[in-house]
Amino acid sequence: MAVVSGSFGAGHDGAAAELARRLRARGHAVERHDLVDLLPRRAGAMLRGLYRRQLTVAPRTWGWLLAAAGSDRLSHRAAALTAAADEATLAAVGDAGLVVSTYPLASQVLGRLRRQGRLAAPAVTYLTDLSVHPAWVADGVDVHLALHDDAARQAKALGAPDVRVVAPAVRPEFAEPAPPPAGDPRALVVAGAWGVGPVARAALDIAATGLAVPVVACGRNDALRRRLDRSGRVVALGWVDDMPGLVRSCRVVVQNAGGLSSLEALAAGVPVVTYRCLPGHGAANAEVLDRIGWVPWLRCREDLADGLRAAMSGRPAFTPSPVPPESVLADLAVTA
């Protein structure tokens, strides 16, 4: 088997890593690949750098771009960009019996290769987002794995022929039992590996409520960590190796993008709220998470105190599918 991801942040890679680990545990040989490395002449690295800078400097423009990305004009441009990775992808996956994508542009490559008859193995897309952008649904991909009935409905509406609902691929360490956190209540603010978005404002807003001590996982954003350190009101952390332990030590997780960190916290039994979310995929995921009852979206500062109180006084309403994604993938590999 082969799993193709995209290192645009850590969420897509995190899902790919967990899927690969579970499949290997079942006895399958699995190779992982990054679309960034499959694009020629460092185009992938440059695209990743532009994306990170856009989220950091002008996040609203990312929201506008994502909204427009479903148009025919931009879809053709995306197809032209990803086509440059076709040959390298085909060589990388080789004679794999099944190929799984955890990143939308990788799905576009696999779907095109399937349509052209150049990729013999079935292609599967694991939808890491609860909000399904049109780029996620590539013509030619055989099966889409969704994390909720709502996401499955969206994928089907976009033309996905075979959609199956599975549980999120979250590391088992997050679900390990742990004693209730002691001491002053802490609110963990997560913003992905890059620490992007209005994280500092969110943390200071939490501090101002007096309800919890904000602990910010700044990822690899050292400038953000230093700025928050100077505030004297926030516990600012750099890269965290024991994320399961950190999540379980807090009473609530505050997130802004609706990605893997949200699912990890819910798996750990820690309530999650959305606050000051990123434009584009952040707002889209926030809307779905709120609609399905997994994560409430606190849309303004006036909602924050009541939202934190409610979250810290209850348990997360999280009812994932009982079907593990690796079982579906293993069955597809057998029947391919």
Results as ranks from 00 to 15, higher is better:
V4C: 05
S7G: 11
A10L: 10
A10C: 04
G11C: 08
D13N: 11
A17G: 08
E18G: 00
L19E: 02
L19Y: 02
L19N: 03
R22W: 03
R22V: 06
A29Y: 01
V30E: 10
R32F: 00
R32G: 13
D34C: 07
V36G: 02
L39I: 08
R42Y: 09
R42M: 12
G44C: 08
M46D: 10
M46C: 07
Q54E: 09
A58R: 13
T61S: 13
T61R: 14
W62L: 01
W64V: 11
A67C: 08
R73K: 13
H76S: 13
A78E: 13
A80M: 10
T82A: 12
A83G: 15
A91P: 01
A91G: 03
A91L: 09
A91M: 05
Y103T: 05
L105F: 12
A106K: 03
Q116E: 15
G117D: 14
R118G: 13
A120P: 05
P122Q: 12
T125C: 13
S131N: 11
H133C: 11
A135C: 12
W136V: 07
A138Y: 07
V143G: 01
H144T: 04
L145R: 07
L145W: 09
A146H: 03
A155H: 12
K156W: 05
G159T: 02
G159Y: 01
V165P: 07
V166C: 04
P168W: 10
A169R: 01
P172M: 12
E173A: 14
E173L: 07
E173Y: 01
A175V: 04
E176F: 01
P177D: 09
P181K: 12
P181Q: 14
P185G: 04
L188W: 00
G192L: 02
A193Q: 10
W194N: 04
G195Y: 00
A203H: 08
I206G: 00
T209F: 05
V213D: 05
A217Y: 05
A217V: 06
R220L: 07
A223C: 01
R226F: 03
L228R: 05
R233W: 08
V235M: 10
V235P: 02
A236L: 10
D241P: 00
D241C: 06
D242F: 14
P244V: 14
L246Y: 12
L246T: 12
L246P: 11
V247A: 00
V247I: 14
R251E: 09
V254W: 04
G258W: 05
G258S: 02
A265V: 11
L266Q: 10
A268P: 11
R276Q: 14
C277D: 10
C277P: 09
P279Q: 08
G280N: 06
N285H: 04
N285W: 07
L289D: 01
D290S: 13
I292K: 06
V295W: 07
L298H: 09
R299W: 01
E302Q: 15
D303L: 10
L304V: 11
L308K: 03
A311F: 06
M312T: 08
R315D: 14
V323G: 00
P324K: 05
P324A: 03
P324V: 06
P325Y: 00
S327I: 11
D331N: 12
A333L: 15
V334G: 02
